[in-house]
Design a protein around this nucleic acid. Structure first.
Lengths: 376, 376
DNA sequence: CGGAAATTGTTTAGTGGTTGAATTATTTGA
DNA sequence: TCAAATAATTCAACCACTAAACAATTTCCG
């Protein structure tokens, strides 16, 4: 219960636009001022919150003390390995990117061990730089362009990887040996990165206890990442849906034209053949129509109100938009009742890396009690 | 916290195969025997649990007292209105169907008010019969073949309904005036009915605190209901996913052949035109292929491990199976890593009605504290 | 200016619910 | 017949939250 309330308080502070007072937090959470005081004291002592200059005064009464997330506490290490670059970044509890290291190099000739060793060096450097700033790296997450299951990269076609234990390889680096490390699909993590930047702050779920529970749009969207392959990350009410075995989001192999072009996956008419980077370069209208057909299926099945186009789609969003929306209008059953919002990704190529780092700080935010135990 | 633990204990008892003792519940939940004793006493006093004959002895020691859900406590009233019948059933806390009333009659000539009045009479009779057995009906849920939003039936094409306030109509019946009533889509509720009968009992989510959290299949499946239209209900980890606005599951209007047959929704090539009841009667192999294509999209997107075919598909499952599976093998990216399980629905035409009743008793199970307050 | 009102934050007593240990109850087995 | 084993209850202690009083600090208003 204590753990839950600590998270609740932290969450409330994080989602406030201006530094709230203890009393404001109490009002927002429904807890007593006394309880919030006690919880806040713990969070301050544990280095998760700091007291800051009070927000501009409003009326009579003793002046409030503002609360904010610390920028010198736990941090997340976000890593990414992709076809033509390696990257690492450090994000602090406030969500600010504190360090960012990118190394451009074609990874395809390298074998997995080489690539991961190089990434490990990058990660170690980022960690060192972060700790010089007083940050404590709480964990690392790695984004890969492939299928991940059980902590293993099962297959990453564009890297020519198969059954690679990336976590073990990274933890073999001495400077990272003590860090908890996870791996995840690139599109999934990019979706989380997008969530943090756009919808992440206004959390519709724990709004004040209104009577109507017909949740408004909330933080729900499908992030579509157009690279050589096409991946998607589905976020429902602020939470990433990974699928039962972690293999969700393979929108690239949704059938668009049943008897169409053969795909490297063995099937025919996959979206990837019509809206992948190669096809995109040749025929944009075709890509838009194909995307529209596949996305209509998603909306019909899942009632997702927002679709975010990322990766290679983001820069050419304007030219794709109309073609996609035409298909959505025609093919989504409920398009007359409420339209589907289509927009370009806010984050550029950093989305996956940022999302990876975010999973770490999200972990701290959701279970601050664990962090307090650790730093006690 | 008390409320949470009450639910936890009730859940543990409900999901046990043989009547567990208080000590067994304590072991399974991680609570102390003392705490469980106190909680169980409340649940027994409130009429949710009963003490039953102990399970067969195992060794030395004081014999245990078995615990089980009462069959004379709260009950759910499940209602269904469909093209050619009205139905009502009463399900008790154990999940047993205690009463079942079906009235065959074509509803299309009737206007919504007439149909709902007739259903109201059926529901009132069912409630009366249930209360004669000592049951207390805790609420009612209605299944309709249409789109539901904000408690209203927005559109039910096969009933020719539009913006019907079915809840208000039912509560206008004097015998039902005091009952909480909800409405939901037929396929959604049928999926819940299926969940209760098959996967509902073995709940993978609160299994003992093992280290690996790579959840095994769990209670996740897509229920596809083939009627005149085609609807789907998606269950993820034992929970129904309704979509942000409650409009998920419209698989009938997923595009299968982009330039195919025109559909009454205004689009072209919708699944419904190839695997709806009319198309089904004409060309079964075509229906199977179309279903296979649409279902492949679902699996690629959501990584759903199990697909359940219900409604008109259930009786002809054997003839559809191979055609669907061929498409799944070809079109699902991960079909080589783990196959998709295809099976026929276990419940017949009662599925939606049973699922509706189940939502009510699920409500009681998930918040027993509310029930105790009420019966105190 | 000075006191009343307002607002924040802390202190203190009280309460609900859980834990842990000791106790009672009831059986099997030597 | 007594020891060991298992089930359930009792009771004191404790933790975390609540409610209400209180202290601190400001604005408002005469």
């Amino acid at each position: 219960m204590r753990a839950h309330n600590l998270a609740l308080v932290l969450h409330t502070v994080a989602n406030s636009t201006s530094p709230p007072s203890r009393a404001a937090v109490a009002g927002a959470t429904g807890l007593t001022r006394a309880t919030v005081s006690a919880l806040v004291d713990d969070l301050v002592a544990g280095g998760l919150l700091i007291e800051v200059d009070p927000p501009p005064r409003t009326g009579a009464g003793r002046p409030a003390v503002g609360l904010a997330l610390t920028s010198t506490g736990p941090a997340g290490l976000g890593l990414e390995i992709n076809v033509d670059y390696l990257a690492a970044c450090v994000v602090d509890l406030t969500g600010a990117v504190r360090h960012r290291h990118v190394e451009h190099a074609d990874q395809r000739p390298a074998d997995p061990a080489q690539a991961l060793a190089a990434l490990g060096r990058l990660a170690a450097a980022a960690r060192l730089a972060a700790e010089a700033d007083g940050l404590v790296v709480a964990g690392a997450a790695l984004a890969v362009p492939g299928l991940v299951a059980g902590g293993l990269v099962r297959v990453a076609p564009n890297l020519a990887w198969q059954d690679v234990d990336a976590v073990a390889a990274l933890r073999a680096v001495p400077e990272l040996a003590d860090l908890p490390v996870t791996v995840d699909n690139e599109a999934n993590l990019a979706a989380l990165g997008e969530l943090r930047v756009t919808g992440g702050l206004s959390n519709d779920r724990d709004r004040s206890p209104g009577p109507t529970d017909a949740g408004p749009s909330g933080n729900s969207f499908l992030y579509v990442s157009g690279e050589i392959g096409i991946g998607a990350g589905l976020v429902i009410d602020g939470e990433l849906y990974r699928g039962v075995r972690g293999w969700s989001g393979e929108i690239g192999h949704v059938t668009v034209y049943p008897d169409g072009r053969p795909c490297r996956c063995g099937s025919r008419g996959c979206l990837e053949q019509y809206a992948g980077q190669e096809a995109l370069a040749v025929d944009e209208p075709l890509a838009a129509a194909a995307l529209g057909i596949a996305l209509s299926a998603v909306v019909n099945l899942l009632d997702v109100p927002v679709i975010v186009l990322g990766g290679a789609y983001a820069p050419i969003f304007a030219t794709l938009r109309e073609g996609i929306e035409a298909e959505l209008r025609a093919r989504v059953l409920t398009s007359g009742l409420a339209p589907v919002t289509l927009r370009a990704a806010a984050l550029g190529p950093d989305a996956a890396m940022r999302g990876a780092a975010d999973t770490i700080i999200r972990g701290v935010r959701e279970d601050p009690a664990a962090w307090l135990r650790r730093s006690a």
